[in-house]
Design a protein around this nucleic acid. Structure first.
Length: 582
RNA sequence: CGGGGAGUAGCGCAGUCUGGUAGCGCACCUGCCUUGGGAGCAGGGGGUCGCAGGUUCAAAUCCUGUCUCCCCGACCA
């Protein structure tokens, strides 16, 4: 491909709305261009990266027996009403009417569509298992799109849906996809972790996320330093490594904690204020938070946890079986149940459900709000002074917590970009949509499902978030838009251009795609652009080298330079590329 | 939804307070010159200053309304 014959332009400055580096580089190199918030055009070079990644996905999935289909982007309302998601998905679904007044939405995910596609054809146990995939544009009406392709409204996704006879078979399909995803992301040669995760609005019980490690990632992950344990912080179990020790008197069983007493804490509103004013009480400070399920007429409940800990709404959602995260009670509601505004609330004397985080249970006594403005209570003892409805893990895990899989391991927090997600769904969709088959002994059985997604467009940018330097992108071989970038320094020299063209032709016969920069530009411009675009190998053909019979090879990653005799360019290029791939 | 900021050439910005011919850098076009790390000189093209209304002899600038975009925020008991 010649630069002059494609549409390639570069910017020295990034548009002011590009927030993270990978997005700036993508825009500067013309890989993407924003059309509207969260909606992008792919330029020819960006498209090549996209296509290469799609190729990898397709290869690994077809290898494992998946069937490629392509479903529509526009879905009728009735389809989504079958599963109740027309309303449950809320604002995320972009809905609109056609000229006849019929409602449609843009496909945000395709569980309904695929189930509809197969439910009348998959009738016999002989038809199962089957696993379908598609690579297609999704639309989700994100509240706040950002970071370019990372959180777009319109994006390209590979989604797959498995249909199985029973749960064991479905779990087998799950494992196949899990392994396929591993194979796919391994080929990118980037750092990623497979983490335990929350199922979110897709639903399901068994689920893993594939997270590409990057500081700009939107997800907080907890990873172990010794085992392969890794979890999204949303669901990571919180296990203290140095629980507060009971005093020796406590251990002997003597009731050393005196009755609780009130003390004045005027103008101290937050736990932070209390910590500052009473540093010696810091480990005993306990906060009482009030929540309710996100639906009308929901009951208020309290969560009690250490001042230093953060509540984890996802855990609450999962423990209580809510369909969504609980929401904070308003100040008025807090006053209604405690008699006092937030700042001095405590668990004593409440007649609502109180959920006690297990981080509190080791404390001999605690300090809580007195439910009286400007007062707190100390020497409060759990069980004696107030009772909890239930004790559980309701808090966020934090750095230094114990690895749930290996007691000697410690967790640390890293950030990740979710590029893949696998779910075991069970029958939650097939049941609602009546997708059934007949067993050998003629019984009607509900089909077991799984669903599996890869954010294709997100991944190519996420990769660059990890692979770049101050000069630009550094593409991994697997998805690099081109493998070789030939800079012809003197385009008026016909011989040089001819040489570049024949080199491209030869390389292409080895499957090595090449971009020839044939612009009439000064060398510096070409080198800067080559660094920005970041293809693995740059070959410089200049008049000086040509007269000496050599070309210069530069590997993008480490800027290693070697001189190569013109006659050996092809073999050497193949050799260098193989070296880079390692 | 709340808070903050911004809409002026393809991109990055100044000009707005204090009304008076629409500016700068990059990019683009022409010519000369230059050619191994974003050269130089000269000339040039491109704007209904987000939109609507108002004030004024005169509005990018002041007033009113409106739209759009961007950033931050759902840890406080």
């Amino acid at each position: 491909m010649k630069w002059s014959q494609t549409h390639l332009y570069t910017l020295k400055e990034a548009p002011s709305d590009a927030d993270i580096l990978s997005q700036q580089l993508f825009v500067r190199a013309g890989l993407i261009k924003k059309l509207a918030p969260g909606i992008f055009t792919f330029g020819p070079v960006g498209l090549r990266a996209l296509r290469k990644f799609e190729g990898i996905i397709r290869e690994e999935l077809e290898k494992r027996g998946l069937i490629e289909v392509l479903m529509p982007m526009v879905h009728p309302k009735e389809l989504w009403e079958e599963t109740g998601r027309w309303t449950k998905m809320g604002e995320g679904l972009l809905k609109f009417k056609n000229r006849n007044g019929q409602w449609f939405c843009l496909g945000a995910t395709h569980e309904e569509a695929i189930t509809d596609y197969v439910r009348y054809e998959l009738q016999s146990y002989r038809d199962l298992p089957k696993n379908f995939f598609q690579i297609q544009t999704k639309y989700r009406d994100e509240l706040r799109p950002r970071f370019g392709l990372m959180r777009g409204r319109e994006f390209i996704m590979k989604d797959a849906y498995s249909f199985d006879l029973d749960k064991p078979s479905a779990l087998k399909s799950y494992q196949i996809m899990y392994d396929a995803y591993k194979a796919i992301f391994d080929r990118l040669k980037v750092e990623y972790r497979i983490v335990e995760a929350d199922a979110g609005s897709i639903g399901g019980s068994l689920t893993h996320e594939f997270q590409l490690i990057a500081d700009a990632g939107e997800d907080a992950l907890m990873v172990s330093d010794v085992s392969d344990f890794a979890a999204n912080r949303e669901v990571c179990p919180a296990i203290d490594t140095n629980p507060v020790k009971l005093t020796s008197n406590q251990e002997s069983g003597a009731p050393v904690i005196p009755f609780f007493e009130e003390f004045a804490t005027p103008n101290l509103k937050s736990i932070l204020d209390l910590e500052t004013s009473y540093p010696d009480l810091k480990p005993l400070l306990v906060k009482t938070l009030f929540f309710k399920e996100d639906k009308p007429e929901a009951k208020i409940f309290a969560v009690v946890l250490r001042g230093q800990d953060e509540v984890n709404p996802i855990k609450l959602k999962n423990v209580f079986g809510f369909s969504q995260e609980p929401i904070w009670a308003t100040d008025q509601e807090v006053v209604r149940v405690t008699g006092v505004e937030p700042g001095s609330c405590g668990p004593l004397g409440l007649n609502i459900d109180i959920y006690l985080d297990n981080g509190v249970t080791g404390l001999p006594s605690v300090v809580v709000g007195a439910n009286k403005k400007g007062y707190h209570l100390k020497n409060v003892v759990l069980g004696r002074d107030f009772k909890a409805t239930a004790i559980g893990d309701y808090r966020m895990a934090k750095s230094g917590d114990q690895d749930p899989k290996n007691p000697s391991g410690r967790l640390s927090a890293v950030r990740g970009i979710e590029v893949g997600h696998v779910f075991y769904l069970g029958t939650q969709y097939s049941e609602k949509m009546n997708a059934r088959y007949l067993t050998k002994d003629q019984k009607s059985q509900t089909i077991e499902m799984g669903c599996y997604g890869i954010g294709v467009s997100r991944t190519i940018q996420a990769v660059i978030e990890q692979c770049h330097d101050k000069d630009g992108m550094i593409w991994p071989m697997a998805i690099s838009p081109f493998l070789v970038h030939i800079c012809v320094l003197d385009v008026k020299e016909k011989a040089l251009l001819n040489l570049a063209e024949s080199l491209e032709k030869s390389l292409l016969s080895f499957g090595v795609d090449t971009l020839i920069d044939d612009r009439d530009e000064r060398p510096g411009v070409k080198f800067k652009d080559a660094d920005l675009l970041g293809f693995p190998l740059r070959i410089t053909l200049g008049k000086k080298g040509f007269d000496k019979g050599v070309a210069e090879f530069v590997t993008r990653k480490n800027q290693n330079k070697i001189e190569v005799p013109l006659a050996q360019m092809i073999e050497k290029a193949i050799e260098v590329l193989k070296e880079i791939e390692k």
